[in-house]
């Protein structure tokens, strides 16, 4: 039918949903990267334990944002029930909720053998007491036996969460900025880039050890590749969104690529500056840890800005 179109943004899923996507993606990828590092690069109890704790805190904060904004908090029981995957396999929120829940379960079990030997946690009043229970020690022994299985279960669910954050907003067909295959790729790459940035901050600030040099080098190189991939995807969006004069895509283009927060904040300080800092680190090295810590903090800031601007720049075509 011949109608006139208005191009409008939405006001339901705003900054709080960007926080959900940001903490969900980064938190999940932190656990996956930390566990893979421990399994295949270097045994690292500190990285695993604090990676797990940070991951669960972030996922709880992110999920808490979504939960707080539900209209009926009791009805959430329908998506917490694993049977939801049989009843609603086409809904990404159902998959995401299950990935998050099971990632937390496997994520707590994987570091249990490390936790029961950790002086720091054994010294904690309540936690230390629980870790000394004989049942916990027996469970830890089983976890030790199936160490890699648990690690992979947590990792697969973690990757699932990171990919889900992109697939979720890709599933809204009315918004060209979201409804395209670039979004899950972008959000997954960004989730792993921000996760590695977070782990680099932990390794450089909280438990620096010169014997972890191999991990530092691997993380910096991987992050450099991920930031490069992100820049390529962003350039693809720059091209893709310039469709016609009057379209939802071109309206999204105007919102994003004329906004200093997106151009300078995200692309400039969230991608290009950390890319250059890490490139110098990989090619020539830095004499201090400050540039890599700075780059990592900027990458994390960029990770939030990406999701924030994506939520606010999704444009619908409304007929009248």
């Amino acid at each position: 039918m011949d109608v006139t179109m208005s191009y409008v943004t939405q006001d339901w899923w705003t900054w709080w949903f960007a926080i959900y996507l940001f903490f969900g993606g980064m938190g999940a990828a932190i656990m996956a990267v930390a566990f893979l590092t421990d399994m295949y690069l270097k045994r690292h109890p500190n990285l695993v334990i604090w990676g797990m704790i940070s991951s669960i805190v972030m996922l709880s904060l992110g999920s808490g944002m979504l939960f707080l904004h539900l209209l009926d908090h009791i009805a959430v029981i329908h998506v917490l029930n694993p049977m939801v995957l049989l009843n609603k396999p086409d809904a990404w929120i159902a998959w995401g909720t299950q990935f998050i829940t099971w990632m937390m379960v496997w994520g707590v079990l994987y570091p249990l053998p490390y936790l029961i030997e950790s002086r720091f946690f054994l010294g904690f009043p309540l936690v230390g007491g629980i870790l000394r229970w004989s049942i916990v020690k027996k469970v830890a022994a089983v976890c030790e036996r199936y160490h890699k299985l648990l690690g992979w279960l947590a990792t697969i669910n973690g990757i699932g969460v990171a990919v889900y954050t992109g697939l979720l907003i890709q599933s809204f067909p009315a918004v060209p900025l979201w409804h395209n295959p670039g979004v899950p790729v972008l959000f997954t790459v960004s989730a792993f880039s921000t996760a590695i940035a977070f782990l680099l901050v932990m390794l450089n600030v909280f438990f620096y050890d010169s014997e972890d040099h191999k991990i530092h080098v691997f993380y910096e190189r991987t992050d450099l590749i991920l930031i490069s991939a992100e820049l390529v995807v962003i350039f693809s969006f720059f091209q893709y969104l310039q469709v016609g004069e009057e379209s939802a895509a071109s309206a999204s283009f105007k919102l994003l690529f004329t906004d200093p927060g997106w151009l300078i904040g995200f692309i400039g300080f969230g991608l290009i500056v950390p890319f250059l800092l890490e490139l110098k680190g990989v090619i020539k090295g830095w004499s201090t840890r400050i540039p890599i810590i700075t780059a990592s903090l900027l990458v994390m800031m960029g990770g939030y800005l990406l999701r924030h601007y994506f939520m606010y720049s999704g444009v619908y075509s409304h007929p009248w």
Binding site: Q10, W12, D72, A75, F172
Partner: peptide, 10 residues
Amino acid sequence: CMGCGACAMA
């Protein structure tokens, strides 16, 4: 319905 709003977004 738990009121997540995904339907409104879609």
